[in-house]
């Protein structure tokens, strides 16, 4: 793209706002990270301690060595990746159907997918618990994954449908006229074009699962325990383990951020560049 703006103009119009944006996004997180390296005595002190005299990694050491946190991170990762795969696997075909076909019950079904998501989840967790118990899925990875994936499906279908609607139908129709099968058309034409949308929907499901607490609390137990539940363990009846909590909170955000950095570099950029040129 041609850019006729001067350097100063660019600085004020792009780089400075971008820097402010990063500060907004990071400030509370940074405060948590700083808290996590304070000795316990400095955490709740008046006046506020901005930077500890003796930064310490003791909370991280305790977190990794004396709690189940590392295993919980792994559990969360397995659950989130599986929920993401399952969620996309179910919602991409559904979104394709909604976007490319006019059929009986289309609007009804689409609305139903939305309606079902409007119920406050909190009231559904006890029936859900009973249902999972009868399916024998309590405290198993598939149980939590199924919970996260199904509750993400409606969102995913809707997002994907609107991305797919943005891709001209004429493209795949032309391909099919040229003799490509439906599956070929989907795999070769539609999916690459919809890739940014699919990736961001995938990230959406991943993050939703990564951060989800209520289902994870109800459906998991000793075998599977996600980080959100593990973090909640640091908030007791009479004390909050601030050191452990902030250390855990600091670590929890890292995988998603790194994932995003990776996706950013290797998927979205390349794929859109390819798609746009076609």
């Amino acid at each position: 793209m041609i850019d006729r703006r001067s350097r100063t103009q660019r600085f004020f119009e792009i780089e400075l706002p971008a820097a402010i944006l990063i500060v907004i996004a990071l400030a509370p997180y940074a405060w948590m990270a700083i808290t996590s390296i304070k000795p316990t005595a400095d955490i709740a002190r008046f006046p506020v301690v901005y930077w500890p005299d003796e930064p310490t990694l003791i909370h991280y050491a305790d977190l990794l060595a004396r709690t189940t946190f590392p295993k919980n991170l792994l559990d969360s990762f397995i659950v989130a990746v599986s929920a993401c795969a399952l969620g996309l696997g179910l919602s991409v075909p559904a979104a394709y159907a909604f976007s490319r076909f006019g059929f009986f019950g289309r609007r009804f079904l689409m609305t139903q997918f939305l309606t079902i998501n409007m119920f406050p989840i909190v009231l559904m967790i006890i029936p859900l618990f009973v249902a999972m118990r009868s399916l024998g899925l309590l405290d198993t990875v598939p149980g939590v994954v199924l919970g996260h994936a199904t509750f993400a499906i409606p969102f995913a279908i809707w997002m994907l449908t609107s991305y797919l609607n943005g891709i001209p139908k004429e493209l795949d129709e032309a391909a099919m006229v040229d003799g490509a099968s439906r599956v070929q058309t989907i795999v070769k034409i539609l999916l690459p074009l919809a890739a940014p949308g699919i990736v961001s929907t995938g990230i959406y499901i991943f993050v939703a699962s990564w951060n989800e607490y209520l289902f994870a609390m109800m459906l998991s137990g000793q075998n599977v325990r996600t980080v959100t539940v593990a973090l909640q363990m640091f908030i007791g009846e009479y004390t909050i383990q601030w050191g452990l909590l902030t250390a855990g909170g600091t670590l929890v955000a890292l995988p998603v951020t790194l994932l995003f950095l990776f996706v950013q570099r290797h998927l979205i950029g390349g794929l859109t560049a390819g798609a746009v040129k076609s």
């Binding site: 967790i125 006890i126 618990f129 118990r133 109800m218 137990g221 909640q232 363990m233 908030i235 007791g236």
Partner: peptide
Amino acid sequence: ESIPWGGGNDYYTRLYAALVA
């Protein structure tokens, strides 16, 4: 089995749900 306390809420929600189920 260690159950999150969650202000008392989570612990008892889990307990009541387990009793019902």
